[in-house]
Design a protein around this nucleic acid. Structure first.
Length: 498
RNA sequence: GGCGCCGUACCCAAGUGGUUAAGGGAAGGGUCUGCAAAACCCUCAUUCAGCGGUUCGAAUCCGCUCGGCGCCUCCA
């Protein structure tokens, strides 16, 4: 079947319109997405943003593009409040926290949380980037970039560090719309002034600090880099001077991405990124997620603490398009769990039918059409709501064929589930010869298997009261029995505790 | 002060100028099953916060009102 010509359109923060992504090199997307600072466990809001990047990668790959995907890990704490000693470094704060007591130093802490981050990343079935560059491993490049900015007259040294001279870049503010710099300081927040800076908007490229927990030697003495320079340097190192797409959370529009543009474009005199996308913040129970409100969730809180299915969590986090606020609730997660289970049930059904007679394939065309509709929706600014709806319609077609479907239909069904899994990541097909996924992670205890056997015997003897009692016992242990034409199945109950 | 978003059924949510307002969850009815689960079929918004306007035609465009929310150098 010929793949129809498709355009991949995304909202561009710079131009404020949905526009087509046109890779500089046809069929090869160069994509940089801002990752987390690893001073603690990443939370589900972080992952909403990373999932947006993941869906971009998957959609581009579904179009047959090659994707060079780079997502950084920030492992330097930054004092972005431009004062001498008033701000608190996030890595240092992490080390001082209760969780941080177990680490010898900030380096260990960064490694630990970076590993956890990658583990959560895989649990939620995100595509592995080409590189996960870390700020501390690109110190030389950052220092060279700062030197170059001083040479070009875009930066200046003060007793406290090196600052970017915002007035030297006339386009400063083009991304965020914050062009009126004086106006920025009429906000409600306290703004710390630093008399060493020429303009309050000037931002640090290098901070001098020989007492900082993480410090490097530079032409300006001991210190550490400013927050923004790492992304400019790492994006250019791995993807070139102009990248096709740059993504992050909505909070990064200003100042982070604005500053990245200023630095990068002063370094190269080229457009830094041709397309900018930003993911709206997640809310929980209608409010901003925060520790003080008690609605703060990490991936492990939900998966290990509440028994959430990781794929269901993924489903929930992508159920609303990235450009709109997503109000996450336990109900959202429960709804998603139902749908993810439906896909698993479909796979089970189709696998059992593989041994049937060939006969005609009665669902292949319909499933193919639905897949393409889902892909169309993704190409239109990642409309995940529509894509998930179209994808789910396919399960209806498969179930309607039912247990008696032909082997041909079953192969179409599995092909479809595989493609939906590639595109949306909400299905993970079992490898050949592998136990079905539900059973893979946890085998039922032998004691329960025995009870199921006893129940079968009771049923055969028509002792239904005993059979029911046995099922109640099994359920009390957190498992459920499903009678099928091929015998009873024992499955862990899927329940999300609210 | 600046930038911006949202208000669609019990809940989540798509649709942003024109056929019957997607889809999911919940709920109710039915089929199947010893029972149950899963699955399948059916029902579930003459209406899109309110009020005005533009238009042959608006949930979709404009204005106002009410209500909710985000960002503005800690933040994905």
């Amino acid at each position: 079947m010929p793949t129809p010509e498709r355009k991949f359109r995304l909202y561009d923060t710079m131009t404020r319109e949905v526009k087509e992504i046109v890779p500089t090199e046809p069929g090869h997307l160069r994509f940089y997405s801002c990752g987390p600072t690893v001073y603690s466990y990443a939370h589900i809001g972080n992952f909403r943003t990373f999932l947006t990047g993941d869906l971009v990668v998957r959609t581009a790959q579904a179009l047959g593009w090659r994707v060079s995907y780079v997502s950084n890990i920030t492992d330097v704490g930054h004092l972005t409040s431009e004062d001498q000693d008033g701000g608190e470094d996030r890595m240092e704060k992490g080390l001082k926290s209760k969780e941080g007591e177990k680490f010898l130093n900030v380096w260990d802490l960064a490694d630990y949380y970076a590993d956890c981050f990658k583990a959560d990343w895989h649990r939620l079935n995100l595509r592995t980037p080409l590189v996960w560059p870390r700020a501390t491993q690109h110190m030389r490049e950052q220092i060279l970039a700062v030197e170059k900015l001083i040479e070009s007259g875009n930066a200046y040294e003060t007793p406290t560090g090196v600052y970017f001279d915002v007035d030297s870049f006339k386009d400063y503010g083009k991304l965020s719309g914050n062009r009126d710099r004086d106006n920025l300081y009429q906000g409600v927040r306290d703004v710390v002034q630093d008399d060493n800076k020429r303009h309050p908007s000037d931002f640090a490229l290098w901070k001098k600090d020989d007492k900082h927990l993480m410090q490097w030697f530079s032409p300006w003495g001991w210190g550490f880099p400013g927050w923004h320079i790492e992304c400019s340097v790492m994006a250019m190192q791995y993807l070139g001077e102009t990248i096709d797409l740059h993504a992050g959370g909505e909070d990064l529009v200003f100042p982070h991405h604005e500053c990245e543009i200023a630095q990068s474009e002063c370094l190269t005199h080229h457009t830094f990124a041709n397309h900018w996308m930003h993911t709206r913040f997640l809310q929980v129970d209608g409010e901003k997620m925060s520790k003080s409100l008690g609605n703060f969730y990490t991936v492990r809180d939900l998966v290990e603490g509440k028994g959430a299915d990781p794929l269901a969590l993924r489903y929930a986090l992508i159920s609303v398009p990235y450009g709109k606020p997503l109000n996450f609730t336990m109900q959202t997660l429960r709804d998603a769990t139902k749908n993810v289970e439906r896909y698993r049930e479909c796979e089970r059904l189709a696998r059992e039918a593989l041994g049937h007679a060939e006969d005609e394939d009665r669902i292949g065309d319909e499933l193919d059409a639905l897949y393409h509709q889902a892909l169309d929706a993704m190409c239109e600014d990642l409309n995940t709501s529509v894509a998930l709806a179209k994808a789910l319609e396919g399960t209806g077609a498969i179930f309607r064929e039912g247990a008696s479907m032909s082997a041909s239909s079953a192969r179409s069904a599995l092909g479809y589930l595989g493609k939906i899994g590639e595109l949306l990541g909400i299905v993970r097909l079992t490898e050949d010869g592998e136990a079905p996924e539900a059973a893979r992670s946890d085998e039922p205890p032998a004691m329960l298997v025995e009870k199921v056997a006893q129940r079968q015997a009771a049923k055969a003897a028509k002792e239904f009261a005993l059979a029911d009692a046995l099922r109640v016992e099994v359920e009390a242990a957190g498992w459920e029995i499903r009678d099928t034409p091929t015998g009873p199945q024992l499955r862990r109950k899927v329940e999300v505790v609210g």
